[in-house]
Design a protein around this nucleic acid. Structure first.
Lengths: 135, 135
DNA sequence: GGCGGCGTTAGACTTTGTCTAATCATCATT
DNA sequence: AATGATGATTAGACAAAGTCTAACGCCGCC
């Protein structure tokens, strides 16, 4: 994702532009990928950036709320952020910890259940857990 | 779930019986429910049990591995254990934090995607996020 | 009875993420 | 240009969940 596209996305989602947010976005949204806060901080440090830990966490929370990145719940100990915003699901390899996008349309819900009384849908998360075949 | 059924389940899943494991199981498997480690410890304390925190965590990890309970990944800060072992999915109310089982068969995957090379399936987690309707 | 192996325990420790209080940036108004 | 308000950023303290360690207990087996 180019700098231009990021600016546009911020604007569209009502996120005020700051240098720090742009730095975080540049790393996370560079390409389709799954990164933890820690990995993002490491990469920022690698590029000599001095964005603080607190800001990275604030920013990722904001990105999650505003739909700029998706928080994926797979690993109970660390939050993973997905740069791909569109409707899609995941493979999670429990051996390697790797997370992989499932091509759109390769999996689809057959029947949708009725929601509990007085609630409305927010979204659906599907994770297909896999492991390495050994032999 | 009765004490008898728990003993049977332990046996079937190759889990050695100990008084502490039985105490944890008695609470978690009592009925279909979703509990955090913390809630389980609280209930143990309420009944006067002195099972240690470490043992509760060890036991829940063991139960997860052996298929005696299911670990649900929904809240990044706390692990939730589901006493229902069968194939089923969940509603997660982000307003209340409540987790609710989706009746079996009410939702089903239409298409199953091809798995990545050299891997085999372990299972599928589906979480339908919902929120309270306000008006 | 002694030994080995596993389970349990208290409490220290680790890790991830949040909070606090101070500082800084931006912008509108005068 | 100074003022002030609002919001973002920062370092570091803090909180919470879960893991680890080292000691101890229990049980079966030789």
């Amino acid at each position: 994702m180019t700098r231009e596209e990021i600016l546009e996305l911020f604007d569209k989602r009502g996120v005020k532009l700051t240098p720090q947010r742009l730095e975080v976005a540049a790393i996370l949204l560079e390409k389709p990928q799954h990164l933890s806060a820690d990995q993002i901080i490491d990469r920022l440090r690698d590029t000599g950036s001095k964005v603080s830990k607190a800001t990275v966490y604030n920013t990722l929370n904001l990105f999650g709320e505003k739909g700029i990145a998706r928080e994926i719940k797979v690993d109970p100990v660390r939050r993973i952020y997905d740069s791909t915003r569109g409707h899609h699901y995941h493979f999670y390899n429990v051996d390697t910890g790797e997370l992989e996008d499932i091509p759109v349309g390769a999996v689809e819900l057959g029947r949708q259940p009725d929601l509990p009384e007085g609630t409305e849908p927010l979204g659906v998360d599907i994770i297909i857990r896999i492991k390495n075949r050994r032999n």
